[in-house]
């Protein structure tokens, strides 16, 4: 069982390493992740929201819907833990 798990892990790692052959090098400014959408946020976020911290601006304003449900997720996690464990005497 352990040998099977080890082989499966090695195969998965080898496939992933083969997949990283086409990935951009570390710190490449022309990487596909850095040229499409994020340039708009970097150039316009301060003018549009007056928040110097771009991470906060994107988290609270542009992706506010995402963050709202993030809060709901952690709220539901707390609710789940209380309802699973809490015993009132």
């Amino acid at each position: 069982m352990k040998a099977l798990a080890f082989v499966a892990t090695l195969v998965t790692g080898a496939i992933l390493l083969y997949g990283t052959m086409d990935f951009p090098a570390w710190g490449d400014p022309q990487a596909p992740a850095s040229v499409h959408l994020s340039t708009h946020y970097i150039e316009e976020a301060v003018a549009e929201t007056h928040v110097p911290n771009i991470v906060t601006a994107v988290l609270g304003d542009y992706r506010g819907y995402d963050t709202m449900f993030e809060t709901i997720v952690i709220y539901c996690a707390g609710l789940a833990v209380v309802s699973v464990l809490r015993r009132s005497r």
Binding site: E48, T49, H50, V51, T56, A57, G60, D61, T67
Partner: peptide
């Protein structure tokens, strides 16, 4: 208000 709304939400 966009800046202050982020503060309320945070």
């Amino acid at each position: 208000w966009r800046s202050f709304g982020i503060f309320l939400v945070e």
